[in-house]
Amino acid sequence: MQDFSYLSAAGKERGALIKGLQMVQEKEGYISDAAISAVASHFALSEAEVEGVVSFYAQFKRNKPGKHQIAVCDGTACHIKGSTLIQEWISAETGIKAGETDADGFFSLSTVACLGCCSLAPVMSINGKVYGKLDRKALISILKNLRKNG
């Protein structure tokens, strides 16, 4: 049985539900079925209602992410600067598509609406660190380096 007692820091008000879910995701990396039950009982809501909120917001993940979470920005600026190609190159290198985690749990890939670094387009972030002005060469070397350093 997992321990979700840290949820008490969010308080019990309905308005803190999203905060509570964010805490879970920060700790666990994703929202598991067990977490849905725990959050539902903490806020005295039905599981369906919690699932409804989780599925509404793009930030919440229901699958366990990889050690290195790659988020490719697909904002307008990045898109016209070739973010589709960035995604393809990452997929070719890692073998996974957006929304997937690779077999050994090393990389996971997702797209985000906009990281707000449009002037450095195209950009991606890996575990929150933003990499800008990507071209194929820079991208491949970033991924290879991560692979090398574990």
């Binding site: 905060k19 964010q22 917001y57």
Partner: peptide, 25 residues
């Protein structure tokens, strides 16, 4: 400070209020 959770529609005011109340935006 309330952190959003990635929903474009929450920029609309009544959606934002719903989101602040902990509901679907």
């Amino acid at each position: 400070i309330k952190e959003g959770a990635g929903a474009f529609v929450c920029g609309e005011e009544t959606s934002m209020i719903a989101s602040l109340e902990g509901r679907r935006g």
